[in-house]
Design a protein around this nucleic acid. Sequence first.
DNA 1: CGAATAATTTTTAGAAATTATTCGGTGCTCTAAT
Length: 495
Amino acid sequence: MNLNFINFICWKKVTTNMTLEAFLEKTFHFTRFHEGQKETIENLLRGKSTLSILPTGAGKSLCYQFPSYYQQTGQTVIVSPLISLMEDQVSLLRKNGEKSVVAINSLLEKRSKKYVMSRLNHYRFIFISPESLSQPEILSYFKELQIGLFVVDEAHCISQWGHDFRPSYLALKEIKAQLSHPLTLALTATATPEVKEDIYHQLFDVEEVAEVCQSVNRENIYYEVVETEDKLDYLETFLQDKKVPGIIYFSSKKEADRVSDWLNARLPYLVQSYHADMSNDDRIRIQEQFIHDDIRVLCATSAFGMGINKGNIRFVVHYHVPNSLENFVQESGRAGRDGKQSLSLVLYQPGDEQIHFFLQEQTYQEKQDLLFLENKSAVDRQTFLSAMTDSQKKWLNQIETSQEGWNGYKQTLTKKKRQQELNIFKMMDYCQTSACRREMIQHYFNEQSIKKQTICCDNCCHEQPDINSEPVEEKQQNNQLTSQEKLEKMFFLGI
DNA sequence: CGAATAATTTTTAGAAATTATTCGGTGCTCTAAT
């Protein structure tokens, strides 16, 4: 018996007469929309694919949840870059009473996966990674669905990761075509003109697109750059009197560990490092303790941050410069989500940017080396497989399954290299400029700077704002610990 | 490319100075051996 047939849900267009606001109140219990939400939703309801650039914390998930309930035209597929993000969204939706939600990823056991796939048309919201969705077998199930909305969350990943780190992001174009070009929503917090171009090219090739764009300006963040010989010393002084949570970003895992240990031995509160070498369990635990103010300061690499929902992060320090202004804005923007005065500090030493040139050159070489296989037959390529790096295998696979093939690969190869170099130079400009840093960020994102702020950046006013006014509740046991007690405490927390 | 560490030499019997070496970011998924 075909169970699929019996359980098939008919996604018939049901439009309510209610105003959007009334529906928002009734279904989501919010009294008003955040900026950008309504516009995005209106576009989607009109059947127009949309790129929405909304600042973090502006409620991006409402943008795809709302249309699903308001106008039931089909299922919603959400492409998400991280398993942890998917799981967060799923549990949030379940908490709000939505039962037909699922995340398809490697956490799903083989048997449950089989079950889920067999009744895929039951789910209102389906979360999936680009890697899973690229698999022909999985995609074939999605072809049978009635997709009302295709969402790409954190869409800047297309531009940032698609070309080297996670080539599956480049497959989304083909995937959309195979799903008969569903209505699409791309969501991100930051997008430079170049990133937008990438998103348009990889996601919106054939359709008309609306754009909803909110300012990148974060009025409550003070921007500062300090050039110092002794970063550790400066950092210690800076942190000494801070009674508020913060993140320190590093461009190497070892450094993050080293400085974390060093600070822990000197500061009267818990500091912890966070990077990709840690087990998943540790990462989840540390994240939770940070969110609950058990750990006050995190020493992290770029692995930390995406999807983090903590309002009271008061400062973000960059111990090393990031590799682009865009990443800098993403990372520093994690400060002050609650709207209260916060601070971004970059500790810059000329030469710090070299690691990024190095890493960039390394991946470029690896990509360049792959061109050797361009004119080889498929059989010949197999013989070289063992000599290839994992990345190269992925790139080759992407080339072979994409319409654009080698030509597309070659075209973007040098273009991307040039772009990334410019990104690093732009970041150096930010560090070295004597003009307003806030204005520079806005211009970089193609925005007009609106008005001068009283609390702006170190080039506009020299007074560091007070970010200490709302100290986190002193946890008795964390206050003034000896290093021995600290070790015990950390052991207790399972770090 | 450059910072941190390891290894060697220099200087004088443990330690300082010089030179050589190593390492460097982001995540998904699947598979095979315990």
